[in-house]
């Protein structure tokens, strides 16, 4: 937001504006078409009719980093590819988000020990917003990753000053047999992302500053 970036006083109006901006950002995440390895097959499945990521506003896969908000790194990143991933990340306009999809991008995966050429986790060179483990993750897990990212975006401050709240880590596994993105032992707490039409959302409550 350039000039006003977290410079305005933390009042009801600026928080309301934040909410509107965040809602816009979270509801129209445009991922980049960027499949490196086998995880890309699941990423395609997520975009297709059965799982249909467009239900969450994240189905418009763009073929250029200039038009994308979300980089889903789907597949093994090796030393040769890491420079390309870094460059693509740099070419994306702000605000930009990164999802590390699959065991390889989270921490090296099967190449963790003997992969002489594999980067052991892409968070070594780009900031990662959400890690989705699995080899490959099921489409439901990617959807859960996107929904988690949306909660994370909703908790951000854009105009108003103040401490950014951490998103609510509700550890709900999306389908039986799927490894949850979050710790499944954590119970859902009060500040789950609610529809922004409810103005009661802004009322001081448990988790929010």
């Amino acid at each position: 937001m350039g000039l006003f970036e977290r410079n305005l006083p933390d009042i009801y109006l600026t928080r309301l504006a934040d909410l509107a901006v965040n809602w816009g950002r979270a509801s129209s995440l445009w991922p980049m078409t960027f499949g490196i390895a086998c995880c890309a097959i699941e990423m395609m499945a997520v975009g297709a009719a059965t799982f249909d990521m467009d239900r969450f506003g994240a189905g418009a896969f763009r073929a250029t980093p200039r038009q994308a908000d979300l980089m889903i790194v789907a597949g093994t990143v090796n030393a040769k590819m890491a420079h390309v991933v870094k460059r693509l990340y740099d070419q994306m306009p702000e605000p930009k988000y990164v999802m590390a999809m699959g065991a390889c991008t989270v921490g090296g995966g099967p190449y963790w020990k003997h992969g002489y050429n594999v980067v052991k986790g892409i968070d070594k060179f780009v900031p990662v917003d959400v890690h989705v483990p699995g080899c490959p993750p099921r489409p439901e897990a990617i959807i859960e990753g996107v929904r988690f990212l949306q909660r994370k975006i909703m908790a951000k401050r854009v105009l108003a000053q103040g401490v950014e709240t951490k998103p609510d880590f509700t550890g709900v596994s999306v389908s039986p047999g799927t490894v949850g993105i979050l710790d499944p032992t954590v119970r859902p707490t009060s500040t789950v992302y609610r529809a922004p039409t409810a103005l009661g959302f802004l009322a001081p409550s448990g988790g929010r500053a």
Binding site: A79, A82, G107, K113, Y116, N117, K120, G121, K124
Partner: peptide
């Protein structure tokens, strides 16, 4: 397969994997 500037031949038995390649950290945390 490997970048032009790579040193060594990885499938040799005496090969030691590099810790870094052109600014990219290849170590295990």
């Amino acid at each position: 397969l490997l970048p032009e500037s790579w040193v060594g031949h990885p499938l040799r038995k005496d090969y030691v994997a590099p810790k870094e390649f052109e600014g990219i950290n290849l170590e295990v945390d």
